[in-house]
Simulated assay, not measured.
Amino acid sequence: MNVIMKHPLFFLILTLLLLISCLGGYDYLHYCINVRSGISSNQIHYVSKAVLTKRQYSQNGWYYDGHDWAYVRWHHRLTGTHTINGVQYHFAKNGKQTLPYRVNYHYQLSAQQGSNQRAHAKYIILHDIGNAGSGREGAAFMKATADSNQAYTNFVVGSQGTVYQIKRPGTVAWGAGTTANANAPVQIELGHTTNQTNFAADYHAYVNLARDMAGKYNIPLTLDRGGKETKGIKSHLWVSRHLWGDHHDPYGYLKRRGVSKQQLAHDLKNGF
């Protein structure tokens, strides 16, 4: 022990620990090791509404109560504007995230409908409805037929930029085949419209939702990159080419509305 205490490195480490203690104690050391390295900051805690009113938290990361999101760092909810995993987030004074889109829960599946299995955070999958249906019509159809058709996504976007939540993010949706479904905490359908102003609202919500969820689940903001082991945002066309299926969405509909694949990739990476 005496030999160790006389070693110059011992005094350097001791000085560093004392400095960290003065700057913020164990919490700051824990933050440096875990949060900055991404070990704990990418955790998502699925909680009750009461938890989001707590003053202190034992773990860092995202907290979600089914409607509201908060991000905890140093055991407290963040407020103001912060960039997390490459995405800028805004938090109100009460610590709840100010979403860059509006959510409608009218067509949300019950706990007895669909799957409650947790998905692995590997892909965000982008779809379009595939017919002339609006976002609201697509959401209503999924609500009515999720179990009988065994088909639905977590969200449907449309009807002037509304985000219809069908099943909580983080759960397996039935939208792209077994392997894709198990590895996609979020799948998003885009409803159709022939009105260009309405499309612009839909498209902005579609991209904002994908970016928002990719940041939360620590999924890269890249579109259709690599093979099945490459994390990122994927189109249903990519899923058909690399995993299973014969779908080509959402590129046909987007092209008709004036948005190329390159534009979509740019907007997902950079936002608006």
Rank of each mutant, 00 (worst) to 15 (best):
F199Y: 00
Y71T: 08
H248F: 10
C22R: 09
G175V: 00
Q43R: 09
T178R: 06
K261P: 12
A119C: 04
D68S: 14
I33N: 07
D246T: 13
N195F: 03
T81P: 05
R168E: 10
T178M: 03
T222M: 03
S260D: 01
S260M: 02
S41H: 04
S40C: 10
T145R: 08
Q113R: 03
L221T: 00
T15E: 09
N34A: 06
A70H: 06
G252C: 03
G177A: 02
A214N: 01
A139T: 05
Y251W: 11
G170S: 01
L23V: 09
Y63M: 00
D212L: 00
N198V: 11
A151F: 07
V239D: 01
N183P: 02
R118A: 11
N181R: 02
E189R: 08
N60F: 05
I4W: 05
S48Y: 02
R73W: 07
T15S: 15
W74E: 13
A184F: 03
S37L: 13
V51L: 10
L223C: 03
D212C: 04
G158Q: 07
R211I: 00
Y251P: 02
T98N: 13
G135W: 03
R77V: 08
M142S: 07
I219D: 06
Y89H: 01
R256W: 07
I33K: 07
R102F: 12
S37R: 11
M5G: 09
L190C: 04
K231A: 08
N42S: 12
N218R: 15
Q117R: 14
G80S: 04
R168L: 11
S48G: 13
Y105A: 10
M142V: 06
L52C: 13
K228S: 15
Q150S: 11
H236L: 11
A132W: 13
A139N: 06
G271D: 06
G227D: 04
A92M: 10
H7F: 14
Q43D: 11
I44V: 07
K93N: 15
R102Q: 15
V186L: 05
Y105H: 15
N154P: 01
V259R: 12
S148Q: 15
C22T: 14
T197L: 11
I129W: 10
K96E: 13
I124V: 15
R102L: 07
Q262G: 08
D249K: 11
N218I: 06
N104L: 03
G170R: 00
N94G: 04
D249V: 15
M5V: 15
H90L: 05
F272A: 09
Q108P: 09
V259Q: 06
R77S: 14
N42I: 12
R257T: 05
N208T: 12
G161W: 07
G114L: 00
M142C: 03
R36K: 14
N198H: 14
E189P: 09
K269F: 09
C22H: 10
N131R: 05
